[in-house]
Design a protein around this nucleic acid. Structure first.
Length: 667
RNA sequence: GCCGGGUUAGCUCAGCUGGUAGAGCAACCGCCUUGUAAGCGGUAGGUCGUCGGUUCGAGUCCGACACCCGGCACCA
């Protein structure tokens, strides 16, 4: 008789079973309800197949739909497999590659047969139908351990060159697994999977879009055809998700920018924003706020040239490593002749600045700096140009001309941690003022293409790491993680990310500890010892750029800005023309109090005016009719259908709005 | 830059297999003096992204280019 193994269950009970017993067996022994609900098992913390035998003492928890995070991960992974199987059934000759679960679903990358070409959205309904057939067939998903040679052999003989290539690079001797779906289909996969395709809800997924995607994320390798889907545990969950997406689409900054007349883009200046008066009000309020915050945090503001000689960019290293992103301008008078070229091609080159840092070093280098002068915190709302890949442009979030809330802190090494910590606190305070309670912090480590020695990078990376730890924010709550290879060519970066309406994350703030540029541009200070020393240069931004940050603000607030940022803070709207003079007087009073106010005296019904200004997302409507004109009051109606209005004396309304319109740092 | 889709009136969009453009809202004019998310009537407005091709005839078919959207790659 074999030795029994001990299985501890979440309720604290222990079962003694034969080695090789599966979680499915145990679930069945506990009860038929659990057996039916079981999706997978957590064995010693690891999610595994229900049918995978347990060989030793273990802690076991049966995963059901109630363990939502685990369950979603499982079903999404399974949907990806079902997608791959369905596509191969419908389109023989398609090669499979990889398909993971995503935040709201799954995708799978295919190499379609060359004569077929990439998949299009028109293909999706048929593929969905085929997926439902696979699910309804309730095919068992069975795990098998194969050797690497077996895998390569199988994939090669089935024309799966991508899979074979991948298998060939796996380590020899490691246990590799494949999953069979029924008899006729399989994919190499680490698992785990549900017991069978029938465990999926055929009505809880939807294929959403197609896209190109490079094989192994490498633009030099073939482009695959990716199909995305969203997948859930139930039809209800799916429908709720689709509604959320629809709601999110309404917050799109491009749509709201149009509706609220904030800005526009046009092809003649693609990648550069035309800010309209309404949008520029937001910019100015934000800029004024940031300027006050920087002033009080010990920064000094400067303004530097837009164009500099290419030799300066060579010196800084940008010409070598960043030139493909720079706008280059010949330093010559263009020809006015009708015939012949406009520029000779022989003139010296200048370039629009893609960054402000070299210019700040040039200011630092003027005169002699003492260790007593440090830290010097040099700030600039600097307008930069970068010639970005055209496919990267996105509304006002990713543009070719943008203004950074940039600053460079020149300091001694012993001041670094404190400066970075102070920066993180300032950034945290600004984000909270602007309504962002949650943001993510990442550490981007040395890239392949870089300046400086490994020892310098080791040190710079460690300082950033230590500084974030010192603020207590290197935690899961802040999405703390390190990103290998993602730093700038001159320095590692801390990145601060916010989310847009549909959950895409965008880097906004950053701080980078740089020793390379001070060296290359020969920045130095005189130390206590009378010798010259190199300062460290911290590159940092809080908003990142006004363009991106305002884009995020628009989506975050869905256009319903807090009063201090609202382009139009209030509209005085009349009910009858008899109240016109009074309305104008009220508007004048509010303007005298520094508020941004319009009056609406049009001969329209009040319903019409309410609707129109509500759609423009004006925070307050001050309604005046005969009654208010006689009594010297206004009816104050906050934006929103659920908001209750109040009738107030004009002075009381002015006081209320003026107090609410104070920027967060003035309260 | 790469893959897929798109570009029609100020805005949102319709226009089937080719026969030379249509709606709603906005604008303008008039009526209505109105009490909290669209009062009524009328008028005007488009070289259908650009260039080229096929055709007796192109918004519609084909090609190139530009820009936009969704991803990929790149990045604040």
């Amino acid at each position: 008789m074999t030795q029994l193994i001990r299985i501890s269950l979440p309720d604290g009970s222990v079962r003694e079973v034969e080695p090789g017993t599966t979680p499915a067996d145990i679930a069945a022994a506990i009860g038929p309800g659990l057996a039916k609900a079981a999706l997978a098992a957590r064995v010693n913390g690891e999610v595994r197949d229900l049918s995978r035998p347990i060989e030793g003492d273990a802690e076991l928890a049966i995963v059901t739909a109630k363990d939502e995070a685990d369950a979603l991960e499982l079903v999404r992974h399974d949907y990806a497999h079902v997608l791959a199987e369905a596509v191969q059934r419908l389109f023989p000759g398609t090669q499979i590659t990889f398909g993971p679960a995503t935040e709201d679903g799954f995708y799978y990358d295919f190499a379609p047969a060359p004569e077929r070409g990439p998949f299009t959205e028109e293909d999706l309904p048929a593929i969905e139908e085929e997926m439902r057939r696979v699910i309804r067939a309730d095919k068992p998903l069975v795990r098998e351990a194969w050797t690497r040679a077996q895998l390569i052999d199988w994939f090669q003989s089935h024309g799966e060159t991508f899979k074979a290539e991948w298998a060939a690079e796996l380590p020899e001797g490691e246990a590799l697994t494949v999953y069979r779906s029924g008899e006729e289909w399989l994919d190499m996969c680490r698992g785990p999977h549900l017991a069978s395709t029938g465990k999926l809800d055929p009505n809880a997924f939807k294929l959403t879009r197609v896209s190109g995607a490079y094989w192994r994320a490498d633009p030099k390798r073939p482009m695959l055809s990716r199909i995305y889907g969203t997948g859930w545990l139930s039809k209800k969950q799916l429908e709720e998700h689709l509604v959320r997406l629809e709601e999110a689409a309404k917050r799109d900054h491009r749509k709201i920018g149009q509706e609220m007349d904030l800005f526009h883009l046009q092809s003649e200046a693609h990648g550069s924003v035309f800010w309209h008066p309404n949008g520029f009000v937001i910019w100015r309020a934000l800029e004024a706020y940031m300027r006050r915050r920087l002033d009080s945090a010990g920064y000094e503001e400067v303004k530097t040239p837009q164009l500099m000689d290419a030799r300066q960019w060579e010196q800084s290293g940008h010409w070598g490593k960043y030139r493909e992103n720079m706008f280059v301008v010949p330093d010559e008078i263009p020809s006015t002749e009708d015939e012949g070229p406009i520029v000779s091609g022989e003139a010296d080159m200048m370039a629009l600045k893609p960054m402000n840092c070299p210019a700040h070093v040039l200011i630092f280098r003027q005169g002699i700096k003492s260790y007593r002068d440090l830290p010097i915190r040099m700030a600039e709302f600097g307008c930069c140009h970068r010639n970005e890949p055209h496919g990267a442009l996105h509304g006002i979030m990713r543009v070719r001309q943008f203004t950074q809330d940039d600053a460079h802190i020149f300091c001694r090494e012993d001041q670094l941690i404190e400066e970075i910590r102070a920066f993180c606190d300032l950034l945290d305070s600004v984000y909270r003022d602007l309504g962002f309670d949650s943001y993510a912090i990442k550490l981007a480590l040395r890239p392949e293409q870089r300046f400086g020695t490994d020892a310098e990078w080791d040190k710079a990376e460690q300082i950033l790491r230590d500084a974030v730890r010192a603020t207590g924010r290197a935690t899961a709550e802040y999405g703390w993680e390190e990103l290998p290879g993602e730093g700038a060519f001159y320095a590692p970066k801390l990145e601060f990310h916010l989310r847009d309406a549909i959950g895409r994350t965008w880097q906004v703030g950053t701080i980078q500890a740089d020793t390379v540029l001070p060296e290359r541009l020969d920045a130095s200070y005189v130390g206590e010892d009378g010798e010259r020393h190199r300062p460290v240069m911290l590159h940092r931004a809080i908003l990142g750029t006004f363009e991106r940050f305002i884009g995020i603000l628009i989506e975050h607030h869905a256009g319903r800005f807090p009063l201090w940022l609202a382009p139009v803070q209030a509209v005085v709207a009349t009910i009858v023309s008899d109240a016109n003079d009074y309305a104008e007087e009220v508007a004048r009073t509010l303007r005298a109090a520094g508020l941004r106010v319009e009056s609406d005296l049009r001969n329209e019904k009040i319903n019409y005016k309410v609707r129109e200004h509500s759609l423009r997302k004006v925070p307050y409507l001050l309604v005046v009719g005969r009654r208010e004109a006689e009594e010297g009051t206004i009816a104050l109606r906050p934006l929103g259908a659920d908001a209750r209005q109040e009738v107030l004396p004009v002075e009381a309304a002015v006081e209320r709005l003026r107090a609410e319109a104070l920027p967060p740092d003035a309260r």
